[in-house]
Computed example of a mutant assay.
Amino acid sequence: MTGTVAVNGEVCRLEDLRLQDFLQSFFFGAGFFETLLVEEGAPMFLARHLTRLRESLGAHAGCVHAPPPEVLTPEAVREALRRCLEAEATLRPRFTGVAKLVAGDGKLLLSFRPLPPRAPGEGVVLDSVEDRCYRRGDPTLNHKSVSYLRQYAHLGRGTVFVNEAGELCEVPNGNLFFLVGDAVVTPPLETPCLPGIIRSVLLREGRLGEMPIVERTLLRGQVEDVRGCVLTNSVSLALAVPRLLGRELPESLALAEQARAVVREYARREA
């Protein structure tokens, strides 16, 4: 993380933040966050991220102290981002990397970090299953809470979360799309999984080439029917999964390339 941050639009140094200003978030996980891609100083899908953040705050209004509405607008965040980039020598106005928004304790914290090291076209192998902590219909997993230990503990381990019914849900850092038959399938929110920004874009587009994109449950035992798999999140956009639970998926790379192209075209139209 870089040293320059913004709190409710005011630029400051990370080391000057006070713990007492973030007590609910720190001690109780009473807050939400968004991680988004910044390219050449422009945040991708910022309005969508803020909409999801406001929805999470609204759904937990009784226990999470939301920031003032005026700092949760795309215009306010873009201005805070611009001022941070101008203030930080290691960022500069044409920064490409990751921005993070954390909302809680009446504040919106904006911070930055470099892009994760990953070669173009590099995929991620998912060969591990965690089936003890996801339960169908759990509403907490439809929100990106700062109480993130459940996911954080499995980052980098190639883990797929599976619910008590044996349905594939998501991975610690993104949603999953499976090529099954002549359709691209992604688990419904009630499995549960996060309503990811890239997930919503792909569902809105509705197709990858000639293949429809649909919400449908996929059981662990149905992995044998999967021909390709893609992991989506707001930083990497779409990553190929060349192996899923021991099954080689040669069609994943092409599927991920198609998904990235659709997402980037959507972002271009929405900008």
Results as ranks from 00 to 15, higher is better:
residue 154 H to A: 10
residue 83 R to D: 13
residue 3 G to I: 00
residue 107 K to H: 15
residue 23 L to W: 10
residue 10 E to K: 12
residue 183 A to G: 02
residue 166 G to Y: 14
residue 115 L to T: 08
residue 95 F to Y: 15
residue 263 V to Q: 01
residue 113 R to G: 08
residue 74 P to F: 09
residue 105 D to Q: 00
residue 153 A to L: 13
residue 227 R to H: 14
residue 132 R to A: 08
residue 22 F to R: 11
residue 100 K to C: 06
residue 82 R to A: 15
residue 40 E to N: 13
residue 77 V to G: 06
residue 206 G to R: 01
residue 48 R to I: 02
residue 93 P to L: 06
residue 94 R to L: 14
residue 53 L to V: 02
residue 5 V to E: 09
residue 24 Q to F: 08
residue 146 V to R: 03
residue 249 L to P: 12
residue 189 L to R: 12
residue 178 F to H: 11
residue 172 P to N: 10
residue 240 A to C: 13
residue 179 L to N: 02
residue 81 L to S: 10
residue 223 V to G: 12
residue 190 E to H: 15
residue 7 V to E: 13
residue 177 F to V: 00
residue 183 A to V: 02
residue 91 L to P: 08
residue 107 K to S: 13
residue 230 V to A: 06
residue 267 A to Y: 09
residue 156 G to H: 07
residue 268 R to A: 14
residue 79 E to T: 05
residue 77 V to P: 03
residue 120 P to E: 10
residue 242 P to K: 11
residue 190 E to W: 10
residue 164 E to L: 06
residue 170 E to F: 00
residue 64 V to M: 07
residue 164 E to R: 14
residue 153 A to I: 07
residue 89 A to W: 08
residue 8 N to M: 01
residue 156 G to Q: 06
residue 252 S to W: 11
residue 254 A to C: 02
residue 27 F to W: 11
residue 147 S to H: 12
residue 143 H to D: 04
residue 116 P to I: 07
residue 223 V to D: 05
residue 224 E to T: 10
residue 254 A to K: 12
